[in-house]
Write a protein that binds this DNA or RNA. Structure first.
Length: 254
DNA sequence: ATGTCAGAGGCACTCTGA
């Protein structure tokens, strides 16, 4: 079972990239983030052999799951006080797995209500993830977490010091999810590999210099550890003309 | 502060978010 995650920074602008990549890599499931529009090209994916579920909003955010296997929709928003008006969460059941796609709030700039929203969102995510641990179904939470977990996950910590993605509060919350027992699939298989990133700024040839950050993650419930086969970052789409600023991460489970 | 890209509104170009 191959599950991929890709923040595409507009599905409309990136549809050819996504189609070509699906045809080439052929994962069973693809989690998409930052669709940036209300129209989702369901028919395009159906023609490629994938069914899809999407939660969208005008101009911003938006997440979708496309799958070769039947998808049973469970929830389109994170539980908690108040209604989340942002399209950032999608929980489905595919085969024997709970598959959760998240686009965690960016939170910049720090010291604003945007940063508070990010922390609140992470607290609510934690509550859900604790709940899932008590269920019989194994859980994969994937997507754009907008968190740089450790110093090793960025090219130069000093240049991210004032950024919401690198603040102690979100990083502590991310570590808290690991303390619950969830496994960071990529880091567990590559414990000390440096320079492994999923996002590079469009500015100043960041990709060419590998000045990036690792913010797209797969967290696995503990029972999946024995099924974890590989987790790799596919940098090829980031080299194409007009790329997303993120590149896909691909998880393989037995 | 800068750098680049995408969408929205509305038809030139600024604004927002990332």
């Amino acid at each position: 079972m191959e599950i991929a995650s890709w923040n595409v920074n507009s599905i409309k602008a990136r549809l050819d990239h996504v189609k070509n990549w699906l045809e080439k890599r052929g994962p069973d499931i693809l989690l998409l983030q930052e669709l940036k529009g209300v129209d989702f090209p369901t028919e395009t994916f159906r023609a490629l052999g994938y069914e899809s579920v999407a939660v969208t909003q005008k101009a911003y955010n938006g997440v979708a799951i496309v799958s070769r296997f039947p998808v049973k929709s469970v929830s389109q928003s994170l539980d908690g006080l108040g209604v989340d008006t942002h399209a950032r969460f999608l929980e489905v059941i595919i085969k024997d797995l709970r598959v959760v796609n998240i686009y965690l709030p960016n939170g910049n700039p720090i010291g604003t209500e945007k940063f508070e929203y990010k922390l609140d969102w992470m607290d609510r995510l934690r509550v859900q993830m604790e709940r899932w641990l008590t269920s019989e179904i194994a859980t994969v939470v994937g997507g754009d977490f907008n968190v740089i977990p450790e110093d090793i996950d960025c090219h130069k910590p000093a240049s991210w010091i004032g950024d919401a993605l690198f603040q102690p509060e979100p990083r502590e919350r991310y570590r808290g999810l690991l303390e619950l027992g969830y496994i960071d699939a990529f880091r567990s298989l590559h414990p000390s590999e440096k320079g492994q990133f999923t996002f590079w700024d469009y500015f100043r040839q960041a990709f060419e210099h590998n000045r990036g950050i690792r913010i797209d993650h797969f967290l696995l419930s503990p029972g999946l550890s024995s099924r974890l086969k590989s987790c790799v970052i596919d940098k090829i789409p980031r080299r194409l003309p007009k790329p997303s600023d993120h590149t896909p991460i691909v998880l393989t489970l037995d």
